[in-house]
Amino acid sequence: MDALDDLDLRVSGCRACPRLVDWREEVARTKRAAFADQTYWARPVPGFGPPDARLLIIGLAPAAHGGNRTGRMFTGDRSGDVLYQALYDVGLASQPTSVAADDGLELYGVRVTAPVHCAPPDNKPTPGERETCRPWLVQELRLLRPTVRAVVVLGGFGWQATLPALAEAGWRVPRPRPAFGHGVRVGIDGSVGDGGPDGGGGPEGLELFGCFHVSQRNTFTGKLTPAMLREVLSTAARAAGLGK
């Protein structure tokens, strides 16, 4: 087992936030009628993608009947349908759909994660829950730092979580901290490290991108269109040294 696999295993056993534990388990008991015959994952959902990813996508939190059901980020819900279709369209995924953890989907140089790993009521984690979960994101960033060269953050909540996590993981985040916006691109300098907890030096610089979240509210209203999403992902992929 490599270090990222070990992290994912530890994430999936976390019970640090009582409200989120109660909610994710209640959803698994009551279920949605369409999934009444399925056994829900009902645990924190770890990141998904290769351990040498050059591009990291950071969302918000798993959906109650999506990742909380399937056990994989953005899998089994409409937000995931939009995201993985776009990743497939720009050559970063092996297939355009993500319906189950064993459906054979592969990501090419991309990892998908979230600042909150449990499904929250009304899709709204609290700032306190975001802070409690932040050490997992910091550790994930530290493990990815030999290869990650670009980060796409979906939505303002994730942006507010990502900037301090990047700083804690060893990158030099500009001050004042850059504001979130769709299409925002910020260069984040690496640090000259003295050997972090994983034994490595400081991270290389990376490019940080803002993108509206792939929520139904944004995609149904046209605030985020497939073309807008593809443009951010393809630009970020080029910045990361992926694709064409």
Score class of each variant (00 low, 15 high):
Ala3Asp: 10
Asp5Ile: 08
Leu9Gly: 06
Leu9Val: 15
Ser12Gln: 12
Ser12Leu: 07
Arg15Leu: 09
Cys17Met: 12
Pro18Ala: 08
Arg19Tyr: 10
Asp22Met: 10
Arg24His: 12
Val27His: 01
Arg29Tyr: 02
Thr30Gly: 08
Arg32Ala: 15
Ala34Ser: 15
Phe35Val: 04
Thr39Ala: 12
Thr39Lys: 13
Thr39Phe: 09
Tyr40Ile: 08
Val45Gln: 12
Pro46Leu: 08
Gly49Gln: 03
Pro50Tyr: 07
Asp52Asn: 14
Ala53Asn: 03
Ile58Tyr: 00
Ala61Glu: 14
Pro62Asp: 04
Thr70Asn: 13
Gly71Val: 13
Arg72Gly: 05
Thr75Ile: 08
Arg78Pro: 01
Ser79Ile: 06
Ser79Arg: 13
Gly80Asp: 09
Asp81Phe: 01
Ala86Lys: 01
Leu87Trp: 09
Leu87Thr: 11
Gly91Gln: 07
Gly91Tyr: 06
Leu92Val: 13
Ala93Lys: 06
Thr97Phe: 10
Ser98Leu: 07
Ala100Pro: 02
Asp103Trp: 09
Asp103Lys: 13
Glu106Thr: 14
Leu107Trp: 07
Val110Ile: 11
Val112Ser: 03
Thr113Glu: 13
Ala114Phe: 01
His117Asp: 06
Pro121Gln: 08
Pro127Cys: 08
Glu129Val: 11
Glu129Ile: 11
Arg134Pro: 10
Val138Ile: 15
Thr147Asn: 15
Val148Phe: 07
Leu154Met: 15
Gly156Arg: 10
Gln160Asp: 14
Thr162Leu: 13
Leu163Thr: 04
Pro164Thr: 06
Ala167Lys: 11
Ala169Leu: 05
Arg175Tyr: 10
Arg175Asn: 11
Gly181Thr: 05
Arg185Phe: 02
Gly193Ile: 01
Gly195Pro: 05
Gly195His: 11
Gly196Ile: 03
Gly199Tyr: 01
Glu207Lys: 05
Glu207Ser: 14
Gly210Leu: 01
Phe212Met: 09
Ser215Met: 01
Gln216Gly: 06
Arg217Cys: 00
Asn218His: 07
Phe220Pro: 00
Thr221Leu: 08
Gly222Tyr: 08
Leu224Cys: 09
Ser234Thr: 10
Arg238Thr: 05
Ala240Arg: 04
Ala240Tyr: 01
Leu242Cys: 03
